[in-house]
C-alpha cells in the first residue's frame, strides 16, 4: 500500500496534463518546451519519490532495532553541495529553453500581413481590420468569429473598454491580457487550417465564462474572399 501510493503519483505526473497539439508556429514552440519540462519533471519526481520510498521501506522501525540509536549524522558537505549545484544547473537549462521560446513569442515581424485591433468589453469582443475597413463584433454564445490567413504572421493589438480581460485560444497555447488604458501587441502564425475556440481568461464579472470567440484560419484565397464579402456587407 505504501509503495502503491508513490507509484500512483509518479504515474499521474508522467501521464498527466497533456496539452492539445498547437495550431500556431509560436504555440508549437511552447508545446515543445512544455514536453521538455515534463521530461525533466518526471526525472526529478522519480529521484525524490525514489529516495523517499527507499527511506520508508528500508529504514522503517522494526522491533529488532528497539533501543538501538541510529548513527547521529549531522550533515555532509559533499552531498549538500551536490543537491545545491545540480538543481542550479537544471534551472539554468530550463531558463535557456524559456528564453529561446520567448524570443519567438515576443518577436514582431517587420511587415505583418494582417493587423487586427481587438477591444474586449463586458462581455464580448470587437475585432477590427483597420486597413481593410472590416469590423466583427459580438457577445454571448457563440460570439464573434474572425478569419485569418494561415502561414502568415497576424498581429493583434489588444485593449479593453472597461475592466481587464484576457484573450485566450487554448489551441494556440497562448493568451494575453486586455487592459484598459494599455495596448498589448502580439503575433501569431496559424499553421493548421481550422476553427479555434477562444475565451476570456481574466475574471471580469458575471459574464466572464460567457464571452467566447472564434478564430477561423483559412488559405490566403479564402481569406481574401472573406474580406471582400465582409467589407461589402459593411458598405
Amino acid at each position: 500500500m505504501r509503495r502503491a501510493v508513490p507509484a500512483t503519483f509518479a504515474l499521474a505526473l508522467v501521464a498527466g496534463a497533456c496539452v492539445a497539439p498547437a495550431a500556431t508556429a509560436e504555440g508549437r514552440q511552447i508545446e515543445a518546451l512544455y514536453t521538455a519540462f515534463l521530461v525533466i519533471a518526471a526525472l526529478v519526481a522519480l529521484v525524490v519519490f525514489g529516495l523517499a520510498t527507499f527511506a520508508i521501506v528500508r529504514y522503517r522501525f522494526v522491533p529488532r532495532a528497539a533501543g538501538i540509536e541510529p548513527r547521529q549524522v549531522h550533515g555532509n558537505n559533499l552531498v549538500e553541495v551536490i543537491w545545491t549545484a545540480v538543481p542550479l544547473l537544471i534551472v539554468g537549462g530550463l531558463f535557456a529553453g524559456s528564453l529561446a521560446v520567448l524570443a519567438r513569442t515576443e518577436a514582431r515581424s517587420a511587415e505583418p500581413v494582417v493587423e487586427i485591433q481587438v477591444e474586449a468589453f463586458r462581455w464580448g469582443w470587437t475585432f477590427s481590420y483597420p486597413d481593410e475597413g472590416v469590423q466583427v463584433s459580438g457577445f454571448g454564445n457563440p460570439g464573434p468569429e474572425i478569419v485569418v490567413p494561415i502561414d502568415r504572421p497576424v498581429r493583434l493589438s489588444l485593449t479593453s473598454a472597461d475592466v481587464a480581460h484576457s484573450w485566450f485560444v487554448p489551441r494556440f497555447l497562448f493568451k494575453r491580457d486586455a487592459i484598459p488604458g494599455r495596448t498589448n501587441t502580439f503575433e501569431i502564425t496559424v499553421e493548421e487550417p481550422g476553427t479555434y475556440r477562444g475565451q476570456c481568461a481574466e475574471f471580469c464579472g458575471i459574464g466572464h465564462s460567457q464571452m467566447p470567440f472564434g478564430v477561423r484560419a483559412v488559405s490566403e484565397d479564402e481569406y481574401r474572399a472573406w474580406l471582400e464579402q465582409a467589407s461589402g456587407d459593411q458598405g
Partner: peptide, 17 residues
C-alpha cells in the same frame, strides 16, 4: 515541480488563469 512549469513565462502564456 508544477510551480517551475508556470514560472516559465512562455509556458505560463498557456497555463495562466
Amino acid at each position: 515541480i508544477t510551480g517551475v512549469i508556470v514560472a516559465s513565462a512562455p509556458l505560463d502564456f498557456h497555463f495562466q488563469d
